[in-house]
Write a protein that binds this DNA or RNA. Sequence first.
DNA 1: CGTCGACTTGAGCAAGTTCAATACCGGTGG
DNA 2: CCACCGGTATTGAACTTGCTCAAGTCGACG
Lengths: 251, 251
Amino acid sequence: MLANTDYGTETEQSEQPGHEAAGPSRATPLRADDLARSLPGGMVRVFAAKEHIYREGDPATHVYRVEAGHVCIYRGLPDGRRQIVSFSYPGDFIALGAIRRHSASALAGAKTHMRSYPLAGLQEIARHDAALGLRLYAAVSEELAAAHDLLMTVTHRSAGERLAAFLLALSRRNSRCGENEREIVLPMTRTDIADFLGLTIETVSRTFTKFRIEGLIDLEQCILVTICDLAALEIAAGNGVSARERLELAS
Amino acid sequence: MLANTDYGTETEQSEQPGHEAAGPSRATPLRADDLARSLPGGMVRVFAAKEHIYREGDPATHVYRVEAGHVCIYRGLPDGRRQIVSFSYPGDFIALGAIRRHSASALAGAKTHMRSYPLAGLQEIARHDAALGLRLYAAVSEELAAAHDLLMTVTHRSAGERLAAFLLALSRRNSRCGENEREIVLPMTRTDIADFLGLTIETVSRTFTKFRIEGLIDLEQCILVTICDLAALEIAAGNGVSARERLELAS
DNA sequence: CGTCGACTTGAGCAAGTTCAATACCGGTGG
DNA sequence: CCACCGGTATTGAACTTGCTCAAGTCGACG
């Protein structure tokens, strides 16, 4: 679950790893690949949709890299409420932060291929290879920054701002991956989005239709979002002009 | 800002580092000391109340350890809204997650002594000493788990649950440090608490008085909280027995 | 064609925010 | 010594947002 989606704030200047954000996407292309290179090739396992890769509290045995599909990382409260902490896409690592036990659960959102690296081997290497330790450190640091961004977004922003920020994060992820930044495919359900943004499905749904009516987006089959007015969406997210201007005025 | 305050959920079993929580306090006594031992002795600097140690976006130059006083780590939104990400107490490290730039600001809440360690030196050591890299990795991983806990608490719990969880976290911290677990000193203002829990000062204040009226706590000068009924506070936090029982009754 | 799961939409409600007034505390200066 | 002041906390009343509950829609699949 390498984080990298510059969510809310815009403080960052293009390549500034420390400040990547609580995105629903990830990929941290550089570092993740970096990490992959220093890891011994692992086994690939396939998980069915809604199958758990691991659960909160399980002893940590492996670190995984998503090869295909997508994964929800979440924390649960005993009464069933849950908080999705990140969505992981192909190329992303998950379970990096687990030292002894997993502090969150990982659930395949669809049929998902995961390459797994035994933790024991990883730690063995890290004991000798200082560079790997540093890389792990960097990777988790990014996740931390992402978690802080998500925290910021979820606690201090309205439903509309949250959803707008979410869509923009996915859009940015797309352009980073060379895909269309205006056509967003939502592989996750409304429930997942709600649990990520700290809202209910109803509110998510209503906010989607509100955006559609206002002409910010187009919706097809609940799965495909087309951004019609990127600038307006930025404003709806609360980053909009104000933030940009502040940066420009400050410099 | 080494996290360690087992906030909300009670999934954890006493010594299970991966799952320490988004506490307002910290201290991770073991690891922090551990880390301190492998660091070269740094310079001590004194910061006045409300003085920034660093700001979001600043180039990261040092890692700090709180020697006396306390520090708020926060993220800000352009419009002034802010989210306190952690309160750091003596013994805690801050700025560990910053690789190139600080992803959050650090503000002294009172006159505060900070021991600072130049980042360059730290990285230099880590390049050779694999153990240090691993320690940094572990430390940041704990912070990450803490951030996730805070996220959980702040998004899915009511004002009462949040404040109760906050007080309990401080109480636990006290007992870990050998202090009275029923007498809690709040060095931070209501505004700080509000910005940490994602509420307004008014709501924080009202919730305090509600707890006082219900006999859960006593309040003196806004600074000193005495916990009268620990069990009831646990229940108010949503951890207590209730959650368990509710599940059992439901099934 | 019917059923199931996921999504949408509506109406009423409750929790927390906002705005505004008041109280409290420590420090300063007449 | 007391009055005043600024910053902080408390309290009240109106308002807003998003939640809850409930009904209805849509599309896939057997």
